[in-house]
Design a protein around this nucleic acid. Sequence first.
DNA 1: TCGCACATGTAACGCGTTACATGATTAC
DNA 2: GTAATCATGTAACGCGTTACATGTGCGA
Lengths: 188, 188
Amino acid sequence: MRNSKKTSKTKFAILGMLTIEPMSGYQIKQTMLTSTSYFWAESDGQLYPYLSKLLEENAVTCEIETSEGGRQRKIYHITERGKEVLQDWLLEDENKFHIRNEFMLKLFFGANRPVAANIAQIEEMIRKARRYASLIEGISKRIAKEEAGSPHLPYWLLTIEQGKVVEEAKIKWGEEAIKTLKQLEKGK
Amino acid sequence: MRNSKKTSKTKFAILGMLTIEPMSGYQIKQTMLTSTSYFWAESDGQLYPYLSKLLEENAVTCEIETSEGGRQRKIYHITERGKEVLQDWLLEDENKFHIRNEFMLKLFFGANRPVAANIAQIEEMIRKARRYASLIEGISKRIAKEEAGSPHLPYWLLTIEQGKVVEEAKIKWGEEAIKTLKQLEKGK
DNA sequence: TCGCACATGTAACGCGTTACATGATTAC
DNA sequence: GTAATCATGTAACGCGTTACATGTGCGA
């Protein structure tokens, strides 16, 4: 029996977002972009089809909202059934973690390229880490204000802190690595 | 024109491994398991078909080796053409990084589960990080001995160091996070 | 003789990205 | 008027995991 165990996490990501408040697909996207993008993102091609699936499964309900301008959007609400589905996943101990870090793989094969290329890519990695760190900083400030008193707040602060310390560790490592490689370059 | 830009990194991972020394598919698997598994792994279902593809593309050559016992295995060697393909990738600046961390996503939605469940999953994350850290420690000791003088060594040490500092940062964060959550639990 | 490690593959199938597609409103 | 943002989808297609499949050699 071919019993594929790999299941999409997109459903749970959507359902979780809807526990914050009822949202449209577009709002979910924006929330992810401004809140979870340093550890989770969804593409349009996943988001909208899975919203439809969740609707079929009665895990969400849909309400069409018309703004003053006349623009329409579909606001999704999580149902009791949806909350159960989310719970089941949240209580599962298994957290599969993708371990494909292209930057690290290239560095592992670094002997096959010039030292300068290795340094350049570490510098690029540092730049990215700094961008993430400042994104995280921004999120931190925003939610500390906006979400005071929210039951989500302590957990959001924890994810923010994790992002921060991990990015900082990468930056610190990167700076040391560059020094090491510059020594190596000189030594030749 | 539907021009899918997503390309598999499996080829490059294989070619890179073959710059260390000629290896069989099984050996590549073992090497990954004992050297890169904290940032890169390949499944059988990817490895063997891609070895065949690389052979067709003349990026590798294949030599059948027969041991004393009579057991056979296919030893693959990287060709000049293969080295070029690898180089092209190594010199590319783009490093796509998968940002889907299920543990973090669950924690972000932590308000939807008991505090104890959040603590338990952080503890599990710490256990995993410790396992990785000790795997990395083992790799570190092994290669410091075995690979002295190898041009790969400085780069391998750098990847090891990165793994170490990132795992340590996660552990430290996790321990603090548990303290915070225990306070939260008491406060209720 | 029995199980484990060695060794190499294939098939199914869902996942997830990218590009395609369309249209409305708002701000400059 | 025109660009950006809001807003919602679909289609193609390759990727990658899991399970299936098979066989050898060695040590306990």
